[in-house]
């Protein structure tokens, strides 16, 4: 009968391979994984290794027998080894948790909400907009002049937004490094691609100070653009953002109070 690697070695290799992927491969290909997510990945890997070894009686016995032998000190060699393990393992745990609890100079990671909840309606420059009722931007209704509007939006962008959101609309403008959190990356499929134009209208018009009360603090440096731009200019820059990134604005279904939609 063909015998593979001992199960403990297999487990160790799986763990090392997983940690290698999380710590080396992903950072090399892209960027380091934040500590919290890294922790989730490692814990999941450990749980899965446990499921793997215990998913059959044969592999479980193979895995647990040396552990049982060690805990029960069934051989002469096991007794001193057990003492070492009983001293070293608690010490290691203590060292790890004291280091973890001591913290450091770096502030802990924050639980951030990326898409603040919009209000049902906003007043911009004295005009009331019911966001739910705006399925598409008003300038899109004027299809003949849409290209013109987008061009005007480009000018607005480079005169006002470019400094933070950058040339490639990736949130890497000249001032970007000064902000925490960094400016939004419009190219990301998780930002404007997920949102409707009315949402962007609210965010741009009201800026950071217009963000809702829940999930504070927001730490947004976005100015209140209704103080500097006209309503049309806001719609134009929104059209430009979608045009240049290639994303389609989200169009909402509208409820008619009919259950079973």
């Amino acid at each position: 009968m063909r015998r593979g690697l001992p199960i403990h070695l297999k487990c160790l290799l799986i763990l090392i391979a997983a940690i290698f992927v999380f710590s080396v491969v992903v950072p090399f290909v892209s960027a380091p994984i934040p500590g919290q997510l890294y922790g989730w990945y490692v814990i999941t890997t450990l749980c899965v290794i446990f499921l793997y070894v215990s998913s059959s009686e044969a592999s479980w016995e193979e895995f647990i027998t040396p552990v049982r032998n060690l805990l029960l000190a069934r051989t002469a060699l096991m007794k001193p080894l057990r003492i070492v393990v009983f001293i070293v393992v608690p010490l290691l745990c203590g060292w790890y948790f004291s280091t973890w609890a001591a913290g450091g100079a770096t502030p802990p990671g924050g639980l951030r909400v990326i898409h603040p909840t919009p209000p049902s309606s906003v007043n911009v420059q004295g005009k009331r907009f019911v966001l739910q009722d705006i399925s598409v931007s008003p300038i899109r209704e004027d299809e003949a002049h849409l290209a013109e509007h987008i061009e005007k939006g480009r000018v607005v962008y480079y005169e006002n937004c470019f400094f933070c959101h950058g040339d490639a609309l990736q949130g890497k403008g000249h001032f970007a490094k000064g902000f925490n959190p960094p400016p939004a990356d419009f190219q990301d499929t998780g930002t404007i691609a997920q949102l409707s134009e009315s949402y962007l209208f609210w965010r741009i018009a009201k800026g950071g100070p217009g963000l809702p009360g829940e999930s504070t603090p927001w730490d947004s440096a976005m100015p209140i653009w209704e103080d500097f731009l006209t309503e049309d200019e806001i719609w134009q820059v929104i059209a430009y953002l979608y045009e240049i990134t290639g994303h389609e604005p989200r169009v909402m279904d509208h409820g008619e109070g009919d259950g079973g939609h």
Partner: peptide, 16 residues
């Protein structure tokens, strides 16, 4: 992601 400022900078934002 839950990320410190340092981690967010390395990622280039809140998204990995």
């Amino acid at each position: 992601l839950v990320a410190s400022l340092e981690e967010a900078r390395k990622m280039g934002g809140a998204h990995h």
